[in-house]
Design a protein around this nucleic acid. Structure first.
Lengths: 113, 113
DNA sequence: TTGACATATCCCCATATGGGTATATGTTTT
DNA sequence: AAAACATATACCCATATGGGGATATGTCAA
């Protein structure tokens, strides 16, 4: 078996930085494909393909408007990611706190010299 | 160019469900590889390979103990994921709220009958 | 030393990728 | 009707994958 398809779920879809960029742009409002092409500086087919992946996991929705297609964000499928990562928040905070302690200690030792 | 390697960053590393499982197990404490093999029901080489990916993005750390290697979690690389997703939290909450409103409305209409 | 145990690596496979270029599909304007 | 515009799809490529089986590496025990 190969790697899971990017359309398998939001985790996979969002692993690609360009797709996160697209979502970041759509967070500001509806956009036509060509707008995204200009903003991202990517080839148009590339953008269409990324949009397709995002559509297949439900992260974006489309609406026809004349000869344009307007894409908008649907953030709901990101919730499982948030829920999963949130459980680790305390864990890295503890580690950062521990690191801060070490740095503080080093600083004190320095001051004592 | 092909897809970004799973070792490129935490986003990619964590897109694989098995690797999330491994992190979930390690969140409870240090574990030897064979423990993980038993708990996950995966082939040992598979587990070693997943652990390698996690190691390369810094999500786990290893410690030798006799002929065993004990892996432990380092959640810090998950923070960027949390930070990114967090920005969308309000967005999906609004959408869910809107959905709740619709459901409430439907319910009222039903009651009126 | 020899054998058992624990892990990592190697090689093979099918599959899916992201990017590129060319083209099909559909809509508006002239 | 024809030309221009907007978008999606088809095809090709190099690359990386997750899984499988065999084996190398390293450590402990008899």
């Amino acid at each position: 078996m190969a790697r899971a398809p990017t359309t398998a779920d939001a985790f996979n879809a969002v692993a690609e930085p360009r797709r996160r960029q697209i979502l970041d742009l759509l967070a500001r409002g509806e956009r036509a494909v060509n707008d995204l092409v200009d903003l991202l500086g990517l080839a148009q087919p590339l953008v269409s393909k990324h949009l397709r992946v995002l559509r297949e996991v439900g992260l974006v929705e489309v609406r026809d408007s004349g000869r344009q297609r307007l894409y908008r964000l649907n953030a709901a499928p990101l919730k499982p990611i948030h829920d999963w990562v949130k459980n680790y928040e305390r864990s890295w905070e503890e580690r950062f706190a521990a690191l801060d302690d070490v740095l503080e200690e080093l600083k004190s030792e320095e001051d004592e010299r």
